[in-house]
Protein backbone atom coordinates (compact mmCIF):
# COMPACT_ATOMS: atom_id res chain seq x y z
CA UNK A 1 0.00 0.00 0.00
CA UNK A 2 2.72 2.41 0.99
CA UNK A 3 4.62 1.60 -2.17
CA UNK A 4 1.56 2.09 -4.33
CA UNK A 5 0.91 5.47 -2.75
CA UNK A 6 4.51 6.46 -3.26
CA UNK A 7 4.25 5.62 -6.93
CA UNK A 8 0.97 7.45 -7.17
CA UNK A 9 2.33 10.57 -5.57
CA UNK A 10 5.44 10.40 -7.69
CA UNK A 11 3.17 10.19 -10.73
CA UNK A 12 1.12 13.17 -9.65
CA UNK A 13 4.23 15.23 -9.10
CA UNK A 14 5.67 14.34 -12.50
CA UNK A 15 2.23 14.95 -13.96
CA UNK A 16 2.21 18.50 -12.64
CA UNK A 17 5.23 19.25 -14.79
CA UNK A 18 3.55 17.73 -17.82
CA UNK A 19 0.56 19.93 -17.12
CA UNK A 20 2.84 22.93 -17.17
CA UNK A 21 4.34 22.12 -20.55
CA UNK A 22 0.94 21.11 -21.91
CA UNK A 23 -0.39 24.46 -20.83
CA UNK A 24 2.23 26.09 -23.03
CA UNK A 25 0.84 24.12 -25.97
CA UNK A 26 -2.74 24.92 -25.18
CA UNK A 27 -2.14 28.66 -24.76
CA UNK A 28 -0.49 28.98 -28.13
CA UNK A 29 -2.96 26.75 -29.86
CA UNK A 30 -5.94 28.60 -28.48
CA UNK A 31 -4.65 31.99 -29.43
CA UNK A 32 -3.13 31.30 -32.81
CA UNK A 33 -4.16 27.84 -33.98
CA UNK A 34 -0.50 26.86 -34.04
CA UNK A 35 0.49 23.48 -32.75
CA UNK A 36 3.83 24.49 -31.33
CA UNK A 37 6.34 21.76 -31.84
CA UNK A 38 9.07 24.18 -30.88
CA UNK A 39 7.93 24.04 -27.27
CA UNK A 40 10.61 21.44 -26.50
CA UNK A 41 13.32 23.46 -28.19
CA UNK A 42 12.15 26.46 -26.18
CA UNK A 43 12.57 24.49 -22.97
CA UNK A 44 16.07 23.51 -24.01
CA UNK A 45 16.94 27.03 -25.12
CA UNK A 46 15.65 28.55 -21.90
CA UNK A 47 17.44 26.02 -19.73
CA UNK A 48 20.70 26.57 -21.61
CA UNK A 49 20.37 30.31 -21.19
CA UNK A 50 19.63 29.91 -17.51
CA UNK A 51 22.52 27.53 -16.88
CA UNK A 52 25.05 29.69 -18.64
CA UNK A 53 23.89 33.05 -17.33
CA UNK A 54 23.94 31.64 -13.82
CA UNK A 55 27.56 30.81 -14.50
CA UNK A 56 28.52 34.05 -16.24
CA UNK A 57 26.62 36.78 -14.44
CA UNK A 58 28.12 36.21 -10.99
CA UNK A 59 31.53 36.32 -12.67
CA UNK A 60 30.78 39.65 -14.40
CA UNK A 61 29.37 41.37 -11.37
CA UNK A 62 31.19 39.66 -8.59
CA UNK A 63 28.10 37.99 -7.18
CA UNK A 64 29.62 34.55 -6.59
CA UNK A 65 27.76 32.33 -4.28
CA UNK A 66 24.78 34.61 -3.75
CA UNK A 67 21.22 33.96 -4.77
CA UNK A 68 21.22 37.36 -6.43
CA UNK A 69 23.27 35.94 -9.29
CA UNK A 70 20.83 33.11 -9.83
CA UNK A 71 17.91 35.49 -9.69
CA UNK A 72 19.57 37.84 -12.16
CA UNK A 73 20.25 34.90 -14.46
CA UNK A 74 16.59 33.95 -14.29
CA UNK A 75 15.50 37.46 -15.19
CA UNK A 76 17.93 37.71 -18.07
CA UNK A 77 16.91 34.31 -19.40
CA UNK A 78 13.27 35.38 -19.10
CA UNK A 79 14.00 38.56 -21.04
CA UNK A 80 15.72 36.50 -23.68
CA UNK A 81 12.61 34.34 -24.04
CA UNK A 82 10.59 37.51 -24.60
CA UNK A 83 12.93 38.48 -27.39
CA UNK A 84 12.57 35.02 -28.88
CA UNK A 85 8.78 35.29 -28.74
CA UNK A 86 8.86 38.69 -30.38
CA UNK A 87 11.16 37.46 -33.15
CA UNK A 88 8.99 34.42 -33.81
CA UNK A 89 5.93 36.61 -34.23
CA UNK A 90 7.78 39.12 -36.38
CA UNK A 91 9.65 36.78 -38.66
CA UNK A 92 7.35 33.78 -38.89
CA UNK A 93 3.82 33.89 -37.56
CA UNK A 94 2.70 37.13 -39.08
CA UNK A 95 3.60 35.81 -42.51
CA UNK A 96 1.71 32.59 -42.05
CA UNK A 97 -1.72 33.85 -41.03
CA UNK A 98 -4.52 31.61 -42.28
CA UNK A 99 -2.25 28.81 -43.41
CA UNK A 100 -3.27 25.24 -42.77
CA UNK A 101 -2.50 23.42 -39.55
CA UNK A 102 0.09 21.18 -41.17
CA UNK A 103 1.99 24.10 -42.62
CA UNK A 104 2.07 25.88 -39.28
CA UNK A 105 3.20 22.73 -37.54
CA UNK A 106 6.07 22.37 -39.99
CA UNK A 107 6.98 26.00 -39.46
CA UNK A 108 7.30 25.42 -35.73
CA UNK A 109 9.54 22.45 -36.44
CA UNK A 110 11.68 24.82 -38.49
CA UNK A 111 11.71 27.21 -35.54
CA UNK A 112 12.75 24.32 -33.30
CA UNK A 113 15.80 23.63 -35.47
CA UNK A 114 16.77 27.27 -35.49
CA UNK A 115 16.40 27.54 -31.71
CA UNK A 116 18.47 24.41 -31.15
CA UNK A 117 21.14 25.71 -33.50
CA UNK A 118 21.22 29.20 -32.05
CA UNK A 119 21.05 27.87 -28.52
CA UNK A 120 24.07 25.66 -28.91
CA UNK A 121 26.07 28.28 -30.81
CA UNK A 122 25.45 30.90 -28.15
CA UNK A 123 25.64 28.76 -25.07
CA UNK A 124 27.63 25.73 -26.15
CA UNK A 125 26.49 22.17 -26.45
CA UNK A 126 27.96 20.28 -23.51
CA UNK A 127 26.02 19.17 -20.47
CA UNK A 128 25.49 21.93 -17.91
CA UNK A 129 23.98 22.01 -14.47
CA UNK A 130 21.49 24.37 -12.99
CA UNK A 131 21.58 24.84 -9.25
CA UNK A 132 18.78 26.96 -7.89
CA UNK A 133 19.15 25.49 -4.45
CA UNK A 134 16.52 22.81 -4.74
CA UNK A 135 16.79 20.37 -1.83
CA UNK A 136 17.95 16.98 -2.99
CA UNK A 137 17.27 14.84 0.06
CA UNK A 138 14.18 12.66 0.37
CA UNK A 139 11.81 12.86 3.32
CA UNK A 140 9.56 10.36 4.99
CA UNK A 141 5.92 11.22 5.57
CA UNK A 142 3.18 9.47 7.51
CA UNK A 143 5.62 7.24 9.31
CA UNK A 144 2.91 6.61 11.87
CA UNK A 145 0.28 5.54 9.34
CA UNK A 146 2.32 3.14 7.24
CA UNK A 147 5.07 0.77 8.03
CA UNK A 148 8.17 2.65 6.94
CA UNK A 149 6.17 5.70 5.90
CA UNK A 150 6.08 7.28 2.47
CA UNK A 151 9.31 8.20 0.79
CA UNK A 152 8.90 11.51 -1.00
CA UNK A 153 11.54 13.27 -3.02
CA UNK A 154 11.68 16.84 -1.75
CA UNK A 155 12.96 18.18 -5.02
CA UNK A 156 10.06 16.64 -6.93
CA UNK A 157 7.70 17.97 -4.35
CA UNK A 158 8.90 21.53 -4.65
CA UNK A 159 8.97 21.28 -8.43
CA UNK A 160 5.38 20.10 -8.43
CA UNK A 161 4.46 22.89 -6.08
CA UNK A 162 6.02 25.53 -8.34
CA UNK A 163 4.35 24.02 -11.37
CA UNK A 164 1.01 23.98 -9.58
CA UNK A 165 1.35 27.63 -8.57
CA UNK A 166 2.25 28.61 -12.12
CA UNK A 167 -0.61 26.61 -13.56
CA UNK A 168 -2.93 28.35 -11.10
CA UNK A 169 -1.61 31.77 -12.01
CA UNK A 170 -1.96 31.10 -15.71
CA UNK A 171 -5.51 29.91 -15.30
CA UNK A 172 -6.33 33.06 -13.36
CA UNK A 173 -4.62 35.18 -15.97
CA UNK A 174 -6.64 33.49 -18.66
CA UNK A 175 -9.99 33.73 -16.91
CA UNK A 176 -9.79 37.01 -15.08
CA UNK A 177 -7.61 39.60 -16.77
CA UNK A 178 -8.57 41.75 -19.75
CA UNK A 179 -5.66 40.42 -21.75
CA UNK A 180 -6.72 36.90 -20.89
CA UNK A 181 -10.22 37.57 -22.09
CA UNK A 182 -8.93 39.13 -25.27
CA UNK A 183 -6.90 35.99 -25.73
CA UNK A 184 -9.99 33.87 -25.46
CA UNK A 185 -11.83 36.07 -27.92
CA UNK A 186 -9.01 35.63 -30.40
CA UNK A 187 -9.14 31.91 -29.87
CA UNK A 188 -12.83 31.76 -30.63
CA UNK A 189 -12.78 33.80 -33.79
CA UNK A 190 -9.78 35.57 -35.28
CA UNK A 191 -11.68 37.81 -37.61
CA UNK A 192 -14.32 38.84 -35.15
CA UNK A 193 -11.67 39.61 -32.55
CA UNK A 194 -9.80 41.74 -35.03
CA UNK A 195 -12.89 43.60 -36.06
CA UNK A 196 -13.62 44.68 -32.51
CA UNK A 197 -10.13 46.05 -32.28
CA UNK A 198 -8.11 43.34 -30.56
CA UNK A 199 -4.62 43.53 -32.02
CA UNK A 200 -3.84 39.98 -33.14
CA UNK A 201 -0.12 40.45 -33.40
CA UNK A 202 0.21 41.74 -29.88
CA UNK A 203 -1.83 38.85 -28.55
CA UNK A 204 0.45 36.42 -30.32
CA UNK A 205 3.55 38.01 -28.88
CA UNK A 206 1.97 37.77 -25.45
CA UNK A 207 1.09 34.10 -25.68
CA UNK A 208 4.48 33.23 -27.04
CA UNK A 209 6.06 35.19 -24.19
CA UNK A 210 3.95 33.28 -21.70
CA UNK A 211 4.88 30.04 -23.41
CA UNK A 212 8.51 31.14 -23.26
CA UNK A 213 8.18 31.76 -19.54
CA UNK A 214 6.55 28.39 -19.02
CA UNK A 215 9.41 26.87 -20.99
CA UNK A 216 11.91 28.63 -18.76
CA UNK A 217 10.35 27.34 -15.57
CA UNK A 218 10.06 23.84 -16.98
CA UNK A 219 13.63 24.08 -18.21
CA UNK A 220 14.92 25.15 -14.82
CA UNK A 221 13.06 22.41 -12.99
CA UNK A 222 14.03 19.64 -15.35
CA UNK A 223 17.48 21.07 -15.87
CA UNK A 224 18.25 21.08 -12.18
CA UNK A 225 17.00 17.53 -11.94
CA UNK A 226 18.54 15.94 -15.00
CA UNK A 227 21.17 18.42 -16.14
CA UNK A 228 20.83 20.67 -19.16
CA UNK A 229 21.40 18.65 -22.29
CA UNK A 230 20.04 18.12 -25.73
CA UNK A 231 17.54 15.50 -24.60
CA UNK A 232 15.64 18.21 -22.74
CA UNK A 233 14.05 19.17 -26.02
CA UNK A 234 12.22 15.86 -26.01
CA UNK A 235 10.17 16.73 -22.91
CA UNK A 236 7.71 18.34 -25.28
CA UNK A 237 7.16 15.01 -26.97
CA UNK A 238 6.40 13.57 -23.55
CA UNK A 239 3.78 16.23 -22.93
CA UNK A 240 1.98 15.72 -26.24
CA UNK A 241 -0.27 12.87 -25.11
CA UNK A 242 -1.44 15.21 -22.39
CA UNK A 243 -2.81 17.70 -24.87
CA UNK A 244 -4.66 15.17 -26.92
CA UNK A 245 -6.05 13.61 -23.81
CA UNK A 246 -7.16 16.93 -22.37
CA UNK A 247 -8.16 18.55 -25.65
CA UNK A 248 -6.05 21.08 -27.52
CA UNK A 249 -8.11 24.03 -26.38
CA UNK A 250 -8.90 23.20 -22.79
CA UNK A 251 -6.94 24.61 -19.87
CA UNK A 252 -8.47 22.28 -17.25
CA UNK A 253 -7.94 19.48 -19.79
CA UNK A 254 -4.23 20.20 -19.85
CA UNK A 255 -4.06 20.09 -16.05
CA UNK A 256 -6.08 16.95 -15.46
CA UNK A 257 -4.60 15.31 -18.54
CA UNK A 258 -1.12 15.96 -17.21
CA UNK A 259 -1.93 14.34 -13.91
CA UNK A 260 -3.52 11.32 -15.56
CA UNK A 261 -0.56 10.82 -17.86
CA UNK A 262 1.92 11.33 -15.02
CA UNK A 263 0.22 8.75 -12.84
CA UNK A 264 -0.39 6.35 -15.73
CA UNK A 265 3.24 6.50 -16.74
CA UNK A 266 4.58 5.83 -13.28
CA UNK A 267 2.15 3.03 -12.48
CA UNK A 268 2.74 1.32 -15.82
CA UNK A 269 6.48 1.67 -15.44
CA UNK A 270 6.38 0.05 -12.03
CA UNK A 271 3.71 -2.58 -12.52
CA UNK A 272 3.73 -3.44 -16.25
CA UNK A 273 7.24 -2.43 -17.27
CA UNK A 274 9.13 -5.28 -15.64
CA UNK A 275 6.91 -7.82 -17.41
CA UNK A 276 7.86 -6.61 -20.89
CA UNK A 277 11.42 -5.49 -20.47
CA UNK A 278 11.02 -1.93 -19.25
CA UNK A 279 11.30 1.44 -20.91
CA UNK A 280 7.63 1.52 -21.77
CA UNK A 281 6.74 4.88 -20.26
CA UNK A 282 7.50 6.70 -23.50
CA UNK A 283 4.88 4.98 -25.59
CA UNK A 284 2.53 4.03 -22.81
CA UNK A 285 1.33 7.61 -22.45
CA UNK A 286 0.63 7.75 -26.16
CA UNK A 287 -1.25 4.51 -26.21
CA UNK A 288 -3.24 5.58 -23.17
CA UNK A 289 -4.19 8.82 -24.89
CA UNK A 290 -4.98 6.96 -28.10
CA UNK A 291 -7.29 4.43 -26.52
CA UNK A 292 -8.98 7.26 -24.74
CA UNK A 293 -9.44 9.14 -28.01
CA UNK A 294 -11.17 6.15 -29.55
CA UNK A 295 -13.92 6.49 -26.99
CA UNK A 296 -13.98 10.26 -26.60
CA UNK A 297 -12.63 11.85 -29.78
CA UNK A 298 -13.29 15.35 -28.48
CA UNK A 299 -10.91 14.86 -25.55
CA UNK A 300 -11.70 15.08 -21.85
CA UNK A 301 -13.37 18.46 -21.81
CA UNK A 302 -14.13 19.11 -25.46
CA UNK A 303 -17.72 19.34 -26.60
CA UNK A 304 -18.98 16.98 -29.19
CA UNK A 305 -19.31 18.83 -32.47
CA UNK A 306 -21.52 17.71 -35.33
CA UNK A 307 -20.37 19.13 -38.65
CA UNK A 308 -22.81 21.44 -40.29
CA UNK A 309 -23.55 20.89 -43.94
Amino acid sequence: MGFFLETLIGGLMAGMLYSLVALGFVLIFKASGVFNFAQGAMVLFAALAMARFAEWIPGWFGLEGSYLGTAAAFVVAGALMFVVAWLIERLVLRHLVNQEGATLLMATLGIAYVLEGVGSSLFGSSIYTIDVGMPKDPVFLFEGTFAGGLLINKEDFIAALIAAVLVGLLTLFFQKTTTGRALRAVADDHQAAQSIGIPLNRIWVIVWCVAGLVALVAGVIWGSKLGVQFSLSTVALRALPVVILGGLTSVPGAIIGGLIIGVGEKLSEVYIGPMVGGGIEIWFAYVLALVFLLFRPQGLFGEKIIDRV
Binding site: F35, G101, A102, L105, L237, L240, P241, V243, I244, L248, V276, G277, G278, G279, I280, I282, W283, Y286, V287, A289, L290, L293, L294, P297, G299
Partner: peptide
Protein backbone atom coordinates in the same frame (compact mmCIF):
# COMPACT_ATOMS: atom_id res chain seq x y z
CA UNK B 1 -7.75 6.36 -34.85
CA UNK B 2 -8.18 8.32 -38.10
CA UNK B 3 -11.75 7.07 -38.18
CA UNK B 4 -12.43 8.98 -34.99
CA UNK B 5 -10.10 11.94 -34.87
CA UNK B 6 -8.78 14.42 -37.36
CA UNK B 7 -6.03 16.87 -38.04
CA UNK B 8 -3.56 17.60 -35.31
CA UNK B 9 -5.08 15.07 -32.93
CA UNK B 10 -4.41 12.43 -35.52
CA UNK B 11 -0.89 13.72 -36.05
CA UNK B 12 -0.14 13.24 -32.38
CA UNK B 13 -1.85 9.86 -32.38
CA UNK B 14 0.49 8.69 -35.14
CA UNK B 15 3.40 9.46 -32.86
CA UNK B 16 2.16 6.51 -30.84
CA UNK B 17 3.21 4.29 -33.72
CA UNK B 18 6.60 5.93 -33.73
CA UNK B 19 7.40 5.49 -30.06
CA UNK B 20 5.87 2.05 -29.88
CA UNK B 21 7.98 0.66 -32.72
CA UNK B 22 11.09 2.42 -31.40
CA UNK B 23 10.59 0.50 -28.22
CA UNK B 24 9.62 -2.83 -29.77
CA UNK B 25 12.75 -3.09 -31.91
CA UNK B 26 14.96 -1.94 -29.08
CA UNK B 27 13.55 -4.12 -26.33
CA UNK B 28 11.83 -7.15 -27.78
Amino acid sequence: PSLRVRGLYLAVATLAAQFFTDWVFLRV
